[in-house]
Design a protein around this nucleic acid. Structure first.
Lengths: 232, 232
DNA sequence: CGTCGAATTGACCGCGATCAAGGAAGGTGG
DNA sequence: CCACCTTCCTTGATCGCGGTCAATTCGACG
């Protein structure tokens, strides 16, 4: 592990209030590894042996059933993923693959569960983290069930812009096919939706997104703090 | 509160390991109320003033956006709901209404958060509960994104049968329109899907469901433990 | 019985998926 | 440096699942 990894991880909400002793117990048993793109880190159904932390790169969580696949989320540095499976000691419900070259820290789940029993501050931090994840998923479900694919795309653009400090220009951080799957649509349909948004103030050329008229975009997107707000 | 409510609540996973003292602090401040059907208990966006526990009846969680509504879940006795909002001290992300006459216990959120800080066993129980809820939502998302509406209905019937100790006959526990919304389809489409399942071993007459050929049903449903299993 | 809401059924529409073909971009080897 | 290949994206044509609209039937309840 690089020396500057440790303070970075320590500063995560999940770890920042736990005792120094417990933190080091976790870190001592951890592995760090750099993976190239398109590596399957986790397979749905496997026992959850490690809590994963992505330090650099980009991880895609996805799920499969009956020959179909869907993208569930993208995890960006620095955050943990698959915490719930580790805590419940249950099988992974999603698979994870590197979307690009990524550095990942893996903490044995048994260690995490042991510290969880031992350090109350950590247990409380896990609660906050899980509650946050849960609420994000509720929002995601509402997004899927209450909106058309065009509306989902429009709001995705607004959210991403917000996330980049309200920048009116930014780059899509993943392949369009993955984005399409995440948004619950096909790549073809995403292409068409992108064109359909042009009259509403959005130009997308390759990965480059430019919002030319944010008011028009908001008119069609109708963003809601109870679906699109990351922080609440 | 009725005398027999207290042991019932106490036996919930969420409360069963906490100290007697803390449990009584929670109970002391709690309100109990019986509501008729179709009462809006909670409105999306309101501050989360209470942790709710449904003791009898049936609560529907739903969400709205831009004039549309969708059913998110049905809560049956005895369980809590909207725990994440209480812990995060954030606004409700879903609304709740009684689907039938229901008795509900309401514990002030400030009490819950205070005890959460104080009682580590309770904090750990909250983790387990939230992790469970989170994983249920992941499964629900996979169900929505990976399956057609007919497949969702087929699997819903199998899950419900499983839940009723593998009974081949049971009653739908909610209006078909709510079920349709929960399954992400219209009432009309649910009607048609019900007819479409008849050749696959399912008879539905009113609320009465009869599985006449569970193997045929499984062939079309292809249930997966990573989507349909309640316990994992 | 009459009333009202829910469920069903039919006809039609449209969003989004599928299938198929054509570019654009990036990497590889001669 | 350029031909070639691979892969992704785009575009067009068509299909079908599921939604919408409307009319009817069913069922609970007063």
């Amino acid at each position: 592990m690089r020396p500057d990894d440790i303070p970075a991880i320590r500063s995560l909400n999940l770890f920042k209030d736990m005792s120094e002793e417990c933190f080091h117990t976790l870190i001592r048993g951890a592995y760090v590894q750099t993976f190239p793109a398109q590596v399957e880190l986790i397979t749905e159904g496997d026992p959850s042996d490690f809590l994963h932390i992505v330090v650099s790169g980009n991880i895609e969580l996805h799920a499969n059933w009956n020959g179909r696949e869907t993208s569930m989320a993208n995890v960006r540095p620095i955050s943990t993923f698959i915490l719930a499976a580790t805590i419940k000691d249950g099988p992974y419900l999603m698979s994870a693959r590197t979307a690009e070259k990524s550095r990942v820290i893996m903490i044995p789940s048994t260690d995490v569960r042991a510290i969880f029993e031992q350090d109350s501050e950590f247990a409380r931090a896990v609660v906050t983290e899980l509650a946050q994840c849960y609420r994000s998923l509720v929002k995601n479900t509402k997004n899927l069930k209450l909106r058309t694919s065009l509306e989902r795309l429009a709001n995705y653009i607004l959210r991403t812009s917000n996330f980049s400090e309200n920048a009116l220009e930014f780059k899509l951080s993943q392949e369009k096919r993955r984005l399409a799957s995440f948004l619950g649509m096909t790549p073809e349909n995403l292409s068409r939706s992108i064109k359909a948004l042009r009259p509403y103030g959005v130009e997308i050329d390759g990965n480059q997104v430019t919002i030319t008229n944010i008011d028009d975009l908001k008119t069609i997107a109708k963003p809601s703090v109870f679906i699109d707000d990351f922080s609440s």
